[in-house]
């Protein structure tokens, strides 16, 4: 194997390791298809199943500027089980510096979840997906 390929592989492995570590600490980066860089902090850390809790979602532009005045909607579910979230979470406050409080989040199964975060600013709407392993 060429040296450059080995380096690339190592970088990929390190990235995956960091990503895994980040998820387990209750924060996550959104999928690359989204126009924003979003992360979240869970009131429950680590997240436990069957417990209602809230998140603070932080939205920044890719250049790192906090996004103000957005409306956030949280949906999602478990692709493997073909069902959605057991609750209907809602944005209850904009906290400033690109932070938004989302209340009413509960997960009722361990496994792979996909949280679809819809960010609406005026007419513009973008969906960022947060993968989550519980």
């Amino acid at each position: 194997m060429e040296f450059s390929k080995i380096v690339k592989l190592q970088i990929t492995i390190i990235f995956l390791f960091i990503a895994e570590l980040t998820y387990s600490q209750g924060q996550s980066l959104a999928s690359s298809s989204c126009d924003y860089a979003i992360s979240f902090i869970s009131e429950l850390d680590p997240i436990e199943i069957n417990r209602m809790h809230s998140w603070v979602i932080n939205v920044k532009t890719k250049a790192g500027i906090p996004v103000e005045g957005a409306t956030i909607r949280l949906e999602g579910g478990m692709p493997e089980h073909d069902h959605g979230l057991p609750t209907n979470p809602r944005m209850t406050a904009e906290l400033g510096s690109g932070n938004y409080r989302i209340e009413g989040i509960r997960f009722h199964m361990g496994g792979t979840w996909e949280i679809k975060t819809t960010i609406t600013i005026k007419e513009n709407r973008d969906i960022c997906t947060i993968p989550l392993e519980l």
Binding site: I49, N50, H81, P86, H108, M109, G110, G111
Partner: peptide, 15 residues
């Protein structure tokens, strides 16, 4: 089974 029958009461209390 543990998907729904989880936690110390073996239920997620969901539907």
């Amino acid at each position: 089974c543990i998907n729904c029958h989880n936690g110390p009461l073996f239920t997620n209390d969901e539907f």
